[in-house]
Write a protein that binds this DNA or RNA. Sequence first.
DNA 1: GATGAATGAGCGTTCATTCAT
DNA 2: AATGAATGAACGCTCATTCAT
Lengths: 207, 207, 207, 207
Amino acid sequence: MKTKTDRTGLRRQILDATRSLLLSEGVKNLSMRKIAAEIGCKAPSIYYHFENKAALIQALVEEGHQLLFSLMEEAVGRYTDPLQRLEAYMRAYVRFGLDNPVYYEIMFMLRADESGYDPIESFRQAKKSQAPAIEAFQEAERQGLVSTDDFIRATGAIGIMLHGYLAIILNYPENSPFQPDEMLDYIIDRVFRSHGIGGEPYKRHRL
Amino acid sequence: MKTKTDRTGLRRQILDATRSLLLSEGVKNLSMRKIAAEIGCKAPSIYYHFENKAALIQALVEEGHQLLFSLMEEAVGRYTDPLQRLEAYMRAYVRFGLDNPVYYEIMFMLRADESGYDPIESFRQAKKSQAPAIEAFQEAERQGLVSTDDFIRATGAIGIMLHGYLAIILNYPENSPFQPDEMLDYIIDRVFRSHGIGGEPYKRHRL
Amino acid sequence: MKTKTDRTGLRRQILDATRSLLLSEGVKNLSMRKIAAEIGCKAPSIYYHFENKAALIQALVEEGHQLLFSLMEEAVGRYTDPLQRLEAYMRAYVRFGLDNPVYYEIMFMLRADESGYDPIESFRQAKKSQAPAIEAFQEAERQGLVSTDDFIRATGAIGIMLHGYLAIILNYPENSPFQPDEMLDYIIDRVFRSHGIGGEPYKRHRL
Amino acid sequence: MKTKTDRTGLRRQILDATRSLLLSEGVKNLSMRKIAAEIGCKAPSIYYHFENKAALIQALVEEGHQLLFSLMEEAVGRYTDPLQRLEAYMRAYVRFGLDNPVYYEIMFMLRADESGYDPIESFRQAKKSQAPAIEAFQEAERQGLVSTDDFIRATGAIGIMLHGYLAIILNYPENSPFQPDEMLDYIIDRVFRSHGIGGEPYKRHRL
DNA sequence: GATGAATGAGCGTTCATTCAT
DNA sequence: AATGAATGAACGCTCATTCAT
């Protein structure tokens, strides 16, 4: 029986409080003291669970990558048609960013020296999450649904586009210079068109 | 070391030193004292020329928007064929970002509360720079070179894509997860393909 | 309005307060905050006058070396007989240490990494202060009062002895394991004896 | 029984790790956590074996005094000629300091409030180690080899000199302002000369 | 015997900014 | 037009130590 029920998992509390503070105040204004204040513990306690501030953010980054990976796998797994899988991937990726702005920002929008997270490792993780899209592309090609032979680059280009979309929305959440939903539809549409074949660009079963 | 004879000299020096420091040390490590030290004056002197740090960065942002605008106009002006104008626009936009990473970052990658610059005003400026691309699209449509009727959104989507491209390269300059040049060619190619018509997707005279 | 009188020379106040705190609490317990509190200013103000803690201590070390130098010159200058000059040097050196324990400690008893002062520079300064003793030795030899040809080493050995004497007294000010005054007389006596010639070891006119 | 071995084991490990850390990082940078990390245990475990940091250092100081005592006895015991015994004492004392800088520093160069060790007790111990030198002096006098009647003070003066020598070398190990070996020979020589008798200062059989 | 968890106190330092001059 | 001097607020972090387990 635990007497300190409200103290259970300070490590978890720290991570959550950090996410919450990052969301409300941004990376620049995150401080160990504020995190501690948010939880009700003292700043040095954080150092028991994390070596330093960078390690704390790094832990969040890793959580983010794991979540992203599982979400991408799950999203793609809902469909069998490769183009649907691809669209599902794109939409789920965007959803991940919109639902988890803090994760997305520290994963992909923070300079390495600010997050303390090795960017190479970050991209290695990101590539793992891209795999479902690459495989979907491959399968689509095999089925003659798209004309592309450079699946990796094609997926990279999609990632770039979705990153641009998310980066703008997340950076200016209240002042997005475009209609997010309509723009996303438009973007996805253009992606498919760009891989279309002749007059019948793609045999796409819309989600 | 410049002399202090020039009246407007210090203001200019401050702006230049700020850009230089932002380039070498990043936004996070920029401080009024460092700027002053770089120039050889004292921190309070900066306050004579700029109300505060935010105003200083804002001045740089405005400079950046002016430069971007003139570069975009100039780039498009070199061609008459609308698709060439469009491609020139895209390439010049990317070039602007790569050549002026500091401008690009404070213009489009800094949160409003960090730059102190009104994001709405920022997008108003950005839209001005997008005008040449929009007009090129319109003309291309008029000439039957592309099948698009939503020129603004199409241009927005291009901006999103190029922003994603630049954001990644600028954020991880030494660890870009793709080959910048080849990816840029690929992206531009896909943009045109996505607006192609039937079996002959576009009549594009490559630059 | 704060008059110039009570604010004059915060830099000087900082140095004095630092010396005072070093005396009462030791190097280990010196902190920028305590210095500030002693004076009545705030810790950051110290940083206007000294780059950091090491620079502050270094400034004191330099002061100490200057004081030592002038005291040694002055002490030796009071006599013409070289052996008297030598004795005066030794007694004045000890007096400097006893009167200025803080100076002595930071000059000669602090590890380089604690004082932030280059030990080589420190010894260069110390050697300057040793010059009067070396010259006295030389003159004593010329006059046939002592039999020594290695004046530098002889002076070095004296310095070592006096340092041992001071280091013990200063480290255990209340518990010195010997009678300071008598021991000093004894030491000086032995120094002269060790340089004596035959049965009439030295022609010394006691001070 | 395994328990007993373990019990004394960690205590011993703590002492050794502390010595090692003191050697490599200095007193200032010694911390309970670092000691624990060095061993592979946690900081609170140290408190099972030592009441606090001061007690831990005190234990080392005591070890040092024991070692010094046995080394001095042993060194002097190798000779029968009292002057040789005296020289052996001096050389062994210096050797102890050079070979065991950490012991020497915490025994004789640390302020009482830093070591937590009663300085009076410290000097009581130190005097025990001086006994062989005092006795050698007495015997030398008895044999007419030196002219001294204050053996205790004479030995004290020697201790002061050797302490000065060691304090400088240990404090500036890389920047000693004199040649250690030659200076030691010189010092020992002067000690004997200072106790010499008339034209034939001492009948010393060099070691 | 040892540790997981936590904390109060404190550290050196940096910062944007102010204001009298 | 610029600066000398100062400050309130905060920062990341380390420390010796405690205490329940």
